[in-house]
């Protein structure tokens, strides 16, 4: 037996993302954002997308490009404060924005990736974040909110290193939502700064195991400038 290879180029990797798809996008700020796959999705042109991402990047980069191109219809996120374009699009109702507390967003995605339906949490009780949510009273008499699992049609992931089977390693704070989203989509596409031969990653050092990853895109050795340190 041997493990198969899932290496593909960026354009082909996103070519079957249809109009109306839900797409999880990794990253917290610049670290971990799959800029190359996002650019490929812009070029591909699928519209009416539901994007699930912790934040909205900053003006002119990352998922802001999907906003500018008119491809983003909905955004499920925790914070968009660094992107004035997104705040304006929300205020003008051009994009429907759903805010989720950051850790609840992460846990809903993890729950989806773990094949579960929902979890119970007391986060947000007593605030407007709890409005409209189903409540359950546990035997201890306490009331909890039902937080449904979050899954998506596709996940776009950025990894520091991968092998052809889709085993992934992340770097420093670029890990963030990437390993969670990699588990929670029907089709997971990972771009990687370094693609090693099978066996090139020590099994003990893998953050996301290959069975979660469907497609691997190798990034050029010289990364585009957008991956670099943000100049402010």
């Amino acid at each position: 037996m041997r493990l198969d290879s899932r290496i593909i180029d960026a354009a082909r990797a996103v070519a079957d993302i249809p109009d109306g798809a839900s797409v999880m996008v990794g990253g917290f700020g610049v670290p971990g954002t799959p800029f190359t796959l996002i650019r490929a999705l812009v070029d591909h042109g699928a519209r009416d997308l539901t994007i699930i991402k912790n934040d909205a990047n900053e003006s002119g980069m990352g998922i802001d490009l999907l906003l500018q191109s008119g491809q983003m219809a909905r955004l499920i996120t925790s914070h968009i404060g660094l992107n004035a374009n997104m705040v304006a699009a929300m205020n003008e109702s051009r994009v429907a924005v759903e805010f989720v507390p950051q850790g609840i967003l992460a846990e809903r995605i993890r729950t989806g990736g773990a094949g579960m339906a929902a979890f119970l949490s007391d986060i947000g009780i007593g605030t407007r974040m709890a409005e409209g949510k189903q409540r359950v009273t546990m035997p201890d008499g306490r009331s909890y909110l039902v937080e449904p699992a979050l899954r998506a049609d596709f996940a776009l992931i950025h990894a520091a290193a991968a092998d052809g089977f889709g085993n992934l390693r992340f770097a420093a704070s670029a890990r963030n939502f990437n390993p969670l989203m990699a588990m929670a989509a029907r089709t997971t596409i990972a771009e990687a700064e370094c693609v090693l031969p099978l066996g090139g990653l020590d099994p003990d050092d893998i953050h996301t195991p290959g069975p979660f990853v469907d497609r691997v895109v190798a990034l050029p050795e010289s990364l585009p400038e957008v991956y670099g340190v943000v100049k402010r």
Partner: peptide, 24 residues
């Protein structure tokens, strides 16, 4: 380090003994 920011976006360092983990 382009991969190492805190939640406010500042490019920070880590102390000996630091750990990285996912958002969950």
């Amino acid at each position: 380090d382009r991969n190492l920011i805190d939640a406010g976006g500042a490019y920070v360092s880590t102390l000996p003994g630091a750990a990285f983990f996912d958002s969950a």
